[in-house]
Design a binder for these strands. Structure first.
Lengths: 137, 137
DNA sequence: TCTTTGCTTGACGTTGACGTAAACGTTAGG
DNA sequence: CCTAACGTTTACGTCAACGTCAAGCAAAGA
């Protein structure tokens, strides 16, 4: 199908501003074609945007994300050395994410503990009565 | 045991700078006692630092972290309304982290796929010969 | 006493990731 | 033909989360 997209479509789909997409272009993360002046995004660009945004959500900097995207680009046409270097980098990211996953799981159990603690207190009515409205209303 | 700690000990234990701990204090995230001028951290402060640093690693802003810490503080002595508000906030954080966990898991499978792709290519020798050194060295 | 070492408080600098505003071209509808 | 609505570039602004001095106190050892 290899569709194309306008900047407007992508901003709506991913809930980012046009400024953000242009900024990513300036930073070399995407490289949409041009019809005259206006940007025209291909499926490839869209796929990269998905990776970028997810990368951000999991805490990668744009610099790290660019590195990853470059790796995807170059480990196909690169020589053995390039490719093995890419492999190493991928594994580094992998370990970083695995550590992060543990942090998240720890946080999740702690939050759940806090919530059940609250629920127990509420159930047993172990809470001071709520302060009333201050005065004249 | 309710130990106490110096700023130096904590910087070493958690690999942060003293500047960072003082900054967190300025932001109201911790409130160590003073012996004269110098800060003297209690176990409570240390526990909060652990939460702060983990919060950072999973992508919370200091503002969000302060909110969470406040919730831990106030859902004990607060009235019913306060406490239920805290519960709601905790659940929000919970959902945010669960979404993030999914992002991380997606990223992990993608990274693993990339790595096995590389390994397959290497195993089958489907790689162009490595470019040689440029010229005079 | 002198010096070193550690702690302190400002105050300004920095970096990343955009926001915002100005000033202008382009295309579709009324 | 006019005007909206959308697009563009360029440039400066901003906010968070610290880093980096500068300048000083305070206890401890030589």
């Amino acid at each position: 199908m290899n569709r194309t997209f306008t900047i407007r479509q992508l901003t709506k789909e991913f809930d980012v501003t046009a400024r953000t997409l242009r900024f990513y272009e300036d930073e070399g993360l995407i490289a949409p074609e041009r019809r005259g002046q206006t940007r025209i995004y291909a499926s490839r660009d869209r796929a990269r945007i998905i990776l970028i945004l997810r990368g951000r959500r999991v805490g990668f900097s744009l610099g790290e994300i660019r590195e990853i995207l470059d790796l995807y680009d170059t480990h196909h046409d690169g020589g053995v050395t390039q490719t093995l270097h890419a492999r190493k980098k991928f594994e580094e990211q992998l370990h970083k994410l695995e550590r992060q996953k543990i942090d998240i799981e720890d946080s999740l159990t702690e939050l759940k503990r806090a919530i059940t603690t609250i629920d127990d207190a509420v159930a047993k009515g172990q809470l001071p009565p709520q302060a009333h409205q201050v005065a004249a209303e």
